[in-house]
């Protein structure tokens, strides 16, 4: 894929921004054109936290986009906030330990929530429809489940939950390898890692775990590969 458009969404405090920022920085370090933008509202804490990441070989246009190639869902409530970015071929990575297996129904992943839709849905609501959509890949074929929260809690530390997601994302995107991710974390968090070397080890283990799980899923499923290489 020449131009990755990724949306990540979760609860404030789940580490969505940190994960997305690391993803963009890792891409930038590997020579991609990279753009990261957080979604932010009035509240400092709480609410759904959304991040946009684009990695491209060519110049990047607007910081937001209508349809993502990959949507990453950290929590139940954040689903609704992401739904307008899900197109007919968008891959969806979700944390299966905090989300039930989504029911498959039309464009929605089946779960309803009370969050309002993002302003970018406006053109859609007013009847705008991008032309030239490719053939839809059935939703269940594009879902990738990683029980990140549970794995983090059981095997590592609850806080490296987002690193498992980051590792899984990297495996799906195939833009940055594990080594590049580790170097990125080293660059961003060197201060904390120096203070607590165990933190480094746990973060790296989280990355590896997520990477391995998602790589396996991807290798086993042809439609998923198709969605991810558009």
């Amino acid at each position: 894929m020449r131009h990755w458009k990724v949306v990540a969404a979760g609860e404030g405090g789940q580490g969505v921004q940190s994960m997305a920022e690391s993803l963009a920085l890792a891409g930038y370090r590997e020579g991609w054109k990279a753009l990261y933008m957080p979604n932010f509202g009035i509240e400092q804490r709480g609410g759904v936290s959304l991040a946009y990441v684009q990695l491209s070989r060519a110049e990047i246009g607007s910081p937001k986009f209508l349809t993502a190639n990959l949507v990453i869902v950290f929590s139940r409530r954040s689903l609704e906030r992401c739904r307008q970015y899900i197109g007919s071929r968008t891959a969806i990575l979700y944390d299966s330990s905090s989300l039930e297996m989504p029911a498959v129904a039309d464009q929605v992943i089946g779960l309803q929530s009370y969050e309002t839709s993002a302003p970018e849905a406006y053109p859609l609501r007013t009847g705008f429809k991008p032309a030239g959509e490719k053939v839809e890949i059935p939703l269940d074929k594009r879902l990738v489940a990683v029980p990140a929260a549970e794995l983090a809690r059981q095997r590592l530390h609850p806080r490296v939950f987002n690193m498992i997601i980051l590792g899984a994302t990297a495996a799906l995107m195939d833009t940055v390898d594990l080594g590049g991710l580790k170097e990125t974390l080293e660059e961003r968090f060197s201060r904390y890692f120096k203070r607590d070397p165990q933190l480094r080890e746990q973060n790296f283990k989280g990355l590896e775990l997520g990477f391995k799980l998602a790589a396996r899923e991807k290798n086993q499923r042809i439609p998923l590969q198709e969605a991810l290489t558009d």
Binding site: S62, K64, E120, Y122, A131
Partner: peptide, 17 residues
């Protein structure tokens, strides 16, 4: 015109084509 809303490349492409 989209007062207060972001505009994506896709939307402009759609308008201009």
């Amino acid at each position: 015109y989209r007062p207060g809303l972001g505009i994506t490349s896709e939307e402009i492409l759609e308008e201009a084509r």
